[in-house]
């Protein structure tokens, strides 16, 4: 059954989804630019959705449940992304042009007294 080309394509997309997920995880581990981090999270979402949609396509008629779930997920993603992006912008502009080093102090929390 797994020999049909379609199934192979699904395997491909499934793997692609996981690959994108992992790639974005790597991005999350290394990127310093907040915008790119957000992009990484979005890519991660895309990878997840890719897995879901591939799974939906296992049968001849795609699984409506998974599609519905992805639609929901997409909306969640866009709203969260929008909020996060505005938040990042606000943190970096309205925050009085703080430099990264200064920020680190407030963000680390575990700062020691001099």
């Amino acid at each position: 059954m797994t020999d049909t080309p379609l199934m192979t394509a699904i395997e491909l997309y499934l793997t692609l989804g996981v690959a994108v997920f992992l790639l974005s995880l790597h991005g999350l581990m290394t990127l310093h630019d907040p915008i790119r981090r957000l992009i990484a999270v979005n890519l991660m979402g895309a990878g997840t959705f890719l897995v879901m949609v591939s799974l939906a396509r296992r049968s001849e008629v795609p699984d409506p449940v998974l599609h519905a779930l992805v639609v929901t997920g997409l909306v969640v993603a866009i709203s969260a992304t929008a909020f996060a992006l505005r938040l990042i912008i606000a943190a970096h502009t309205e925050g009085g042009k703080q430099r990264d080093r200064e920020d680190r102090n407030t963000e680390g929390g575990g700062k020691q007294p001099p």
Binding site: M29, T30, L31, R104, G108, G110
Partner: peptide
């Protein structure tokens, strides 16, 4: 040593969390 250790964990919350997650 303790200070060095604390300093090590300051900043880059997202990167470090992701690494720790992995």
């Amino acid at each position: 040593h303790e200070r060095r250790w604390s300093r090590f964990w300051q900043g880059h919350t997202v990167n470090r969390s992701a690494t720790l997650l992995l």
